[in-house]
Design a protein around this nucleic acid. Structure first.
Lengths: 198, 198
DNA sequence: CTACATATTAGTACCTGGTTCTAAAATAAT
DNA sequence: ATTATTTTAGAACCAGGTACTAATATGTAG
């Protein structure tokens, strides 16, 4: 087995199991530990502990950053009780890693966030929705959601909002949302905070 | 500062930053490194490297069990093409800060993740859904989603999945999902691995 | 075949971030 | 004052390496 072949093999082994030590690699590749280490150097593969550290840090970052945003998408235009527009770009974290196709709930989340944001009420909650994922969204695509308020029933009733999401000219998602708008009174059991969101 | 207080403090520090070494802890808590280590023992906190290893393994397992970057909810039972159950607890990050009510898309995301996971196909994508948020979910509530596959059309067609989410006895969400299932051929460019870990 | 180059192996010293163990101080409780 | 608890100290050892030096094997061109 040539050096190149061995290094390719090494790469595959570590990719398949990043938790392998150099000592285990000597057994699998039948070369000395120094050779393993030279190979790692040449391939730029860090030692086991560094690999684990990077994985740990990566997952830690994701846990912190991903669910933190309350609103999915940047709202770029908003006319309360009328319409709104938001932009959201599908990034690595939002897609299936194996094929780069967006997870449905991110597409939904953008639309839902917008449908709720567009309603002028102290609290607005999605009551029900009828949605359709028209075509797949892929990694890197910019989704532009447009929401239109169709009907409003009083200051404390339901509102109907249609949301359409586009990538360029193409519609990728459409949804009909029924949103509850109301004051806080009914459900809260006291202990109100008044934390506004940025 | 008493021993108990110090240990509580230690716990908070490590929780806030799992990547802290004992040496750094001595600086923050103004006690010797031996005391730090005794405290860790008593609290059952493993050493830094072990903590990182566990985080790395955890994230790696998730990536492997479902090639998903962010599955919302822990899947606790799964019978492919039949049914599945997942649990998801609403935390601070998932609710409106001003009233502690869950954002709809997290409730949806749990159901959607489950609806997709329950389908046995190389790729499964949500095509459309009809959903209803039956009652609000509040901060701290544990949502239990149950998915039932209703119909399956061939190995490459649509599947219908019903998902019901409960908090205790109460149903909080119901959804009827139409999920596309298909083989991967079209989009993937091969590259299968089969590495087991211990 | 020889000479040089590349690849591989060997071995030692050293590093981090610990564990394990023994033992001496310091502090608190009875 | 005498135990008991808590804290600190120190040495030996470990995994899984890095960094460096040096010897040996293998190949390759002239």
């Amino acid at each position: 087995m040539s050096k190149k072949e061995r290094q390719q093999h090494l790469l595959l082994i570590i990719e398949g199991n990043p938790f392998v030590t150099d000592r285990e690699l000597t057994r699998q590749l039948k070369v000395s530990i120094q050779t393993i280490r030279l190979d790692r150097m040449e391939l730029g593969i860090p030692e086991l502990r560094e690999r684990m550290k990077q994985m740990a840090e990566h997952s830690y970052d994701q846990v912190r950053s991903l669910p933190a945003d309350e609103v999915i998408g940047d709202i770029v235009d908003l006319q309360l009780d009328k319409s709104g527009i938001s932009i959201f770009e599908m990034r690595e974290e939002h897609v299936f890693s194996r094929n780069g196709i967006a997870r449905g709930h991110y597409v939904f989340a953008q639309a839902n966030s917008l449908a709720v944001a567009v309603i002028d009420a102290e609290i607005a909650l999605t009551a029900s929705a009828d949605i359709r994922f028209v075509r797949m969204v892929r990694l890197g695509e910019k989704c532009i959601s447009k929401a239109y308020v169709r009907t409003l029933a009083g200051r404390k009733g339901k509102a109907e909002v249609d949301v359409f999401t586009y990538v360029g000219e193409e519609m990728v998602f459409q949804g009909h949302f029924i949103v509850y708008r109301s004051a806080i009174e009914e459900y809260s059991e006291g202990g109100e905070r008044s934390a506004d969101r940025h």
